[in-house]
Amino acid sequence: MISSDVIRGYNDTMILYLLLNEPSYGYEISKRIRESTDEKYIIKETTLYSAFKRMESNGYIESFSGDESYGKPRTYYKITEAGKSYYKEKCEEWELTKEVIEKFILKENDNEYN
């Protein structure tokens, strides 16, 4: 399992990606993160909620009351236009980060390694 420190800066990216096509709610998002990473990353409820609140106040997502679960209305989140462009920025940032960090990662087949 990945430590949450490493991944911190990219929780937003994951959540926004999952909201790109349709609105969703807390548990569904955490479940989809767990499933699509083959349980390598499990997002904590507190992490998820604080990401929701932060992105909501930055205007990247909006919340609304959706259909009921066990008699209680669920809070759904949907992505805004600002959120979509922020998502694109984060994707570009990640490509760059990956490219930079990659230069410093030893690989088994690397010449330098031998």
Binding site: Y27, E28, R74
Partner: peptide, 16 residues
């Protein structure tokens, strides 16, 4: 609000 939403997430997870 936070408490309510956290509880909803935990209950969903528990039920599943």
């Amino acid at each position: 609000r936070a408490k309510k939403e956290l509880l909803a997430m935990m209950e969903d997870k528990y039920n599943e």
